[in-house]
Design a binder for these strands. Structure first.
Lengths: 122, 122
DNA sequence: CAGTTATATGAGTAAATATTCATATGTTTG
DNA sequence: CAAACATATGAATATTTACTCATATAACTG
């Protein structure tokens, strides 16, 4: 009954460091958690949405303001705002016909700042 | 010669708050900067890459280790490591046949931590 | 209530991309 | 040098997705 290596089915090479792999595996968060984390970053990973977030960090704005600022259609902006809202990165309030959007969370700014720090150092 | 509104060509609605739009436009970083920022977040926005980054935050690992840990093919991992390297998120060193990867930058951890903070509060 | 304006949304399309498969490169070992 | 192994990479494919277009919803205005 030899100590069977933990080589995974799909991995077409031999495990080099079982101890490291097992230790890291033990500490890894749930797959679902990391999936959610990736989904969050995916929302930041589009230049239209990043520009919207940046703009909303400066000031609350309505959909039309944002469309004008970015020189894009109202529809395109509205679709992206929906994505941002589902990710809980922005919130909105209605005032008559006009819907104002703003950042939902102080994390948004922190995340953007860290990203900026990375590209400025690179 | 009336003061022509700044309504953008592609925006199919009227600007509501010219003052806000102009002020935000003035403060916006260069389009290229925000594009680069989005490109960086895009790299974090894939669960395979996030899992790789998380693993490398625990320990330096070779390609085969990572493939085994994530139960994915060596090829798939290698392709993603290339993306991570181009984004300067990971670095590598060769030791004989084996190539070891590790995080390139302390920002990586900070960015992931901020992302985690967001999903944990949401 | 009819018209106008602001926003939202469903369907379709074009572009981006993650993985697979086959194969190439690079290094060690016999 | 030949065989073996770790890694890299090009091409093909399937999926995702950002935007457009048409239209719906919602609220104000006369």
């Amino acid at each position: 009954m030899a100590n069977k290596p933990v080589t995974a089915d799909r991995c077409d090479c031999e495990v080099i460091h079982d101890d490291v792999v097992n230790e890291v595996r033990r500490k890894m968060p749930k797959e679902e958690t990391l999936y959610d984390l990736a989904e969050t970053f995916k929302v930041f990973g589009d230049s239209t949405r990043i520009r919207i977030l940046w703009a909303l960090d400066e000031s609350e704005m309505c959909v039309c303001d944002i469309a004008s600022l970015l020189n894009m259609t109202q529809s395109a902006i509205s679709h992206q705002l929906r994505v941002l809202k589902q990710a809980k990165l922005v919130k909105n309030r209605r005032e008559g016909k006009v819907v104002y959007y703003s950042l939902d969370d102080e994390h948004v700014r922190l995340i953007i700042d860290q990203g900026m720090a990375h590209i400025n150092e690179g």
